[in-house]
Amino acid sequence: NQASVVANQLIPINTALTLAMMRSEVVTPVGIPAEDIPRLVSMQVNRAVPLGTTLMPDMVKGYA
């Protein structure tokens, strides 16, 4: 099963992502692949992401 990127904390809108904000977890539906975590660092979210939410490509500016 593919691990996805999950929010490790509440991430406010327009926040630049850091490693501490993300974790890898096997979830359904599948979100951004966990191997993309290094690429996500310093990218901004375009909405508030609650703790435990799977990051989807449309939630991260410049990812999709």
Score class of each variant (00 low, 15 high):
Val30Trp: 11
Pro50Ala: 10
Val27Arg: 07
Leu51Pro: 12
Leu17Glu: 01
Ser42Lys: 09
Ile11Asp: 01
Val26Phe: 15
Val26Leu: 07
Met22Ile: 09
Ala34His: 14
Arg39Met: 15
Met59Gly: 03
Pro29Thr: 06
Leu19Tyr: 15
Asn8His: 08
Val30Tyr: 13
Ile13Asn: 07
Val41Trp: 13
Gly31Val: 02
Arg23Tyr: 04
Val30Thr: 09
Thr54Glu: 02
Val26Met: 07
Met21Arg: 04
Pro12Asn: 13
Gly52Cys: 05
Thr54Pro: 06
Asn1Gln: 15
Glu35Met: 04
Leu17Cys: 02
Met43Asn: 04
Gly31Glu: 01
Ala64Gln: 12
Val27Ile: 10
Ala34Leu: 04
Met22Trp: 02
Asn14Ser: 05
Pro38Gly: 15
Pro29Arg: 03
Asn46Thr: 12
Thr54Arg: 04
Leu40Ala: 01
Ile13Arg: 07
Ile11Phe: 02
Met43Asp: 03
Ala48Val: 08
Thr28Ser: 14
Leu19Cys: 11
Pro57Gly: 13
Ile11Gly: 00
Thr18His: 06
Pro50Lys: 09
Thr18Lys: 07
Thr15Asp: 06
Met22Val: 10
Gly31Arg: 02
Pro33Lys: 07
Leu55Arg: 00
Gly31Lys: 01
Arg47Asp: 05
Pro12Leu: 07
Thr15Gly: 05
Leu55Phe: 09
Asn8Arg: 11
Ile37Ala: 11
Leu55Asn: 00
Ser4Asp: 01
Val6Cys: 03
Ala34Glu: 14
Asn1Ser: 15
Gly62Glu: 13
Val5Ala: 14
Pro12Lys: 14
Ile37Asp: 00
Ser4Tyr: 08
Met21Ser: 10
Met21Ile: 04
Asn8Asp: 08
Glu35Leu: 09
Gly62Thr: 06
Pro33Glu: 04
Val45Lys: 00
Asn1Lys: 04
Leu19Asp: 03
Pro50Ile: 05
Gly52Pro: 00
Asn46Arg: 14
Val60His: 00
Gln44Ser: 13
Val6Ala: 04
Met59Leu: 05
Thr53Gly: 13
Pro50Cys: 08
Val30Lys: 04
Leu10Ala: 08
Val27Phe: 02
Ala34Ile: 11
Val60Asn: 01
Tyr63Gln: 04
Val49Lys: 00
Glu25Ile: 05
Leu19Gly: 04
Asp58Trp: 14
Ala3Cys: 04
Ala34Cys: 05
Tyr63Ile: 04
Val5Ser: 03
Thr28Gln: 09
Pro57Glu: 08
Met59Pro: 01
Met22Pro: 00
Ile32Cys: 03
Ser4Ile: 02
Gly52Leu: 05
Asn1Asp: 15
Val60Trp: 02
Glu35Ser: 13
Leu51Ala: 10
Ala20Thr: 12
Asp58Gly: 08
Ala20Tyr: 15
Ser4Phe: 04
Lys61Ser: 11
Ala64Val: 15
Pro29Val: 07
Thr15Pro: 01
Ile11Pro: 01
Met59Gln: 08
Ser4Asn: 01
Val45Thr: 11
Ala16Gln: 14
Thr53Asn: 12
Pro38Asp: 14
Pro33Met: 08
Tyr63His: 03
Arg47Cys: 05
Met56Thr: 10
Val49Arg: 03
Leu17Gln: 01
Arg39Asp: 03
Ala48Met: 08
Met43Cys: 03
Ala34Phe: 08
Glu25Asn: 14
Pro33Thr: 10
Asn1Glu: 15
Met21Val: 05
Ser24Phe: 09
Leu40Glu: 00
